[in-house]
Simulated scan of single mutants.
Amino acid sequence: MTRRRQFNPDSYYHVIMRGNNRQPIFGTPEDMNELKRAFFYTYKRYPFTILAWCFMTNHYHILIKPKEDSLSKIMAMINRRYSHSYSKRYNHVGRIYQKRYFAKEIASAYGLLVVSSYIHRNPIQTSTPLVKRLAQYPYSSFPYYWDEHVPAPPYLDRHFLSSIMPYPHDKTNAAYCQYCLKYKQEVEEDNDVSLCTTQFHNPHS
């Protein structure tokens, strides 16, 4: 019998979802946009807050806190919505995800800074960086921190991380972005860690 996960409703969680057999199930701009739509669709039904996300071609990371409904319910709807779209668009039969999502509670301010930075740095931590500058990566929340004039999705809270920046850093998004750019982070992941190096079309390159 599968053991039910215990979640703290007041905490943020680092969530990772991977493609089956390391396949690039988010390998095109159309795939990425469909994944974004899955998040919007789910948010309207089961509200949540995200501090950071990064969609790579064979996995994605989010730093998320549910507002009312369980994390399991939120993740089930996101992944089911995307899986249905993927199967329809590619005439695919069978599962597309490697296994159930990985989730780890992040219980401290320092942990939130480290994990969010780790998530944002994914595009430049691959063996071949996907972009030269993090602000150029279009499938991450980092550009919304970099340019506060860009309208953000309703579920992104881009004020909280800057508010917990430690001294001597300024409590601004500019300071947070510099923190991300300066420090390479290491965090706990699931047991099958594989950084994706598949290239995609970057409209900002």
Results as ranks from 00 to 15, higher is better:
185 Q>E: 09
201 H>M: 05
130 L>E: 01
93 V>W: 01
8 N>R: 09
128 T>W: 06
19 G>Q: 14
68 E>A: 15
163 S>K: 12
44 K>A: 13
175 A>R: 03
94 G>M: 03
59 H>M: 04
46 Y>N: 00
200 F>K: 12
90 Y>S: 05
145 Y>D: 02
154 P>W: 03
196 C>E: 06
129 P>D: 01
89 R>P: 00
65 K>G: 12
115 V>C: 10
177 C>R: 10
7 F>N: 14
2 T>C: 07
24 P>R: 13
35 L>K: 11
100 R>T: 05
9 P>E: 10
19 G>F: 05
49 T>W: 08
48 F>H: 03
131 V>H: 07
149 H>G: 13
65 K>P: 10
154 P>F: 13
181 L>G: 12
63 L>N: 01
123 P>C: 04
203 P>C: 02
150 V>C: 08
145 Y>H: 14
175 A>I: 10
176 Y>D: 05
73 K>M: 07
9 P>V: 07
57 T>G: 02
127 S>H: 08
26 F>P: 06
77 M>T: 04
205 S>C: 00
192 D>C: 12
33 N>E: 10
113 L>Q: 01
28 T>L: 06
131 V>D: 09
120 H>Q: 04
194 S>A: 14
22 R>Y: 12
161 L>D: 02
83 S>I: 00
91 N>H: 13
173 N>E: 04
68 E>Q: 13
149 H>E: 15
151 P>L: 06
116 S>K: 10
125 Q>I: 01
106 I>K: 01
197 T>A: 08
62 I>L: 14
163 S>M: 10
22 R>W: 11
122 N>P: 05
168 P>A: 14
168 P>V: 08
78 I>M: 05
21 N>E: 10
12 Y>F: 15
97 Y>N: 13
129 P>R: 11
169 H>P: 02
167 Y>S: 15
176 Y>G: 13
57 T>Y: 09
117 S>D: 00
120 H>W: 10
113 L>K: 07
146 W>E: 14
114 V>I: 12
121 R>L: 13
82 Y>S: 01
134 L>T: 07
2 T>F: 13
191 N>C: 04
170 D>W: 06
180 C>I: 15
48 F>Y: 15
143 P>C: 09
204 H>F: 05
147 D>T: 09
107 A>L: 11
5 R>L: 08
37 R>C: 02
3 R>H: 06
149 H>L: 09
50 I>V: 15
190 D>I: 03
89 R>L: 01
94 G>E: 01
69 D>C: 12
139 Y>M: 01
62 I>C: 15
139 Y>L: 01
140 S>F: 05
87 S>Y: 01
42 T>K: 00
37 R>W: 12
19 G>A: 12
126 T>F: 04
85 S>Q: 06
193 V>H: 06
14 H>E: 06
167 Y>E: 11
42 T>V: 04
35 L>V: 03
119 I>E: 02
75 M>H: 02
104 K>L: 11
141 S>T: 10
67 K>A: 13
95 R>P: 08
86 Y>R: 01
108 S>R: 08
86 Y>D: 09
92 H>W: 15
170 D>A: 15
37 R>S: 09
46 Y>D: 00
80 R>K: 03
19 G>N: 11
88 K>D: 06
97 Y>M: 07
195 L>N: 01
140 S>T: 02
65 K>C: 13
171 K>Y: 02
96 I>Y: 06
203 P>Y: 04
127 S>E: 08
14 H>C: 10
22 R>K: 14
109 A>W: 01
63 L>F: 12
82 Y>D: 02
77 M>S: 03
68 E>C: 08
43 Y>M: 00
141 S>N: 13
